[in-house]
Nucleic acid binder design. Structure first.
Lengths: 213, 213
DNA sequence: AAAACAATCACGGAATTCCGTGATTTTTAG
DNA sequence: CTAAAAATCACGGAATTCCGTGATTGTTTT
């Protein structure tokens, strides 16, 4: 099957990156159109106007993240291929992207030409991951610790975490939520267990890095 | 004065971005050469081999930051023009860049064509800042609070902060750096004062949010 | 209905952070 | 050469986090 007349959409709040990549892709012979968006809303709008074969989505965007957008688009458009773009290489994020419809995952510090490779692969019904990612993914298949990695934070835990990262102490949180300090501590302990961190610092990093708030 | 035969060097650990921008710049008539680096070390090496008119440096890079690199290059090469590239728009960072020799400051979410404008401006001996930045800079001239904002984190403090965010305790840090726990505590206290935070959590947020590491 | 999960609470002790206050020694820049 | 800035250290006490261990009560899910 020959690939041609492909229509692409890139969504990344770093305009400089998306425009530059768009310029690069426009030069490719198999590309018919490249549309650039800087946020999820515009992307959804544009999808109502035209049909696209492949979208390249930044994972971390304000308002609506690329992951949420991916979930939405993959539900709406059956044949659409989705490639995520991210500067983070942690497996949890990658897995979450896959669960939400992504077919490929590219690192921003990968070589630019990987994009071409990725587009061709996903159009051929296969998947594509930056080298570093695919290695980690393979590891995680055989690695025990990666399984318990599949973390689910409960609503209450998330609520407590949100207060933790605003520099509230256990006492302050307990007062804000009208529960005992012991309970708050238990939640914090469980959070640390689930996120596999030892200190509040780790918790904060976990939360911020995957832009939970 | 006409601008032509310009040699550019781009340094950004996000290869995808630097390569894409390089592609864009190569198409410009006034550009003779564009060299791409992904880290400070390679950049310094390359400068020993060839002469450049303008460098575009990412502010946040692992190992040696763009700011440090800027300081080094502006000292070594008198006529070199330096444009910083960053995703953060906080004035403190901008000011620090200026202090360290930068002539321009571009946001990654600015329009790609701004680069052309910036290059032409700095080559003409002027400065260039993304709109959002120049507005903030103007504000800060008249705004009191922005002055006391002028935080200077010393190299040592930065070092300690980097260990703090890797979940190291005061004791562990003191051992790693071979200094007393008291000293580490003092640094932490000073950091919290300077960053206007009350807890380690705040410190971690400060560091991550402006991607200091 | 039983198992699994979520949310709640308790206690005690070790470890760590936080805070004020003050001081000495390098190092750096004018 | 001298200020200024940076890095070093000290002490003591209050506050907070961290950790283990265990338990009760609802609420889903199968």
């Amino acid at each position: 099957m020959e690939i041609k007349n492909i229509k692409l959409l890139i969504c990344d709040d770093h305009t400089m990156l998306s425009q530059a990549i768009a310029g690069f892709l426009k030069d490719q012979s198999f590309v018919e159109k490249v549309f650039v968006c800087t946020n999820a809303k515009d992307t959804i709008e544009e999808f109502k106007k035209d049909k696209y074969d492949v979208v390249i989505l930044d994972v971390n965007m304000p308002e609506m993240s690329g992951i949420e957008l991916s979930k939405f688009l993959s539900n709406e458009y059956e044949n659409l291929k989705i490639i995520m773009l991210s500067m983070r290489s942690d497996i949890l994020t990658v897995k979450e992207c896959i669960r939400n419809g992504a077919h490929g995952y590219l690192l921003k510090n990968a070589d630019l030409t990987e994009i071409i490779e990725a587009i061709k692969r996903v159009l051929a019904g296969k998947s594509y991951f930056s080298k570093q990612i695919s290695e980690s993914l393979l590891d995680s298949q055989y690695n025990f610790s990666s399984l318990k990695d599949d973390i689910f934070i409960t609503p209450r835990e998330r609520e407590i975490l949100s207060l933790v990262i605003t520099e509230k102490s256990t006492k302050q949180i307990s007062e804000a939520l009208n529960i005992s300090e012991n309970t708050v501590e238990t939640h914090r302990k469980n959070l640390m267990k689930k996120t596999n961190t030892k200190t509040t610092v780790g918790l904060v990093k976990y939360a911020i890095e995957r832009s939970l708030f």
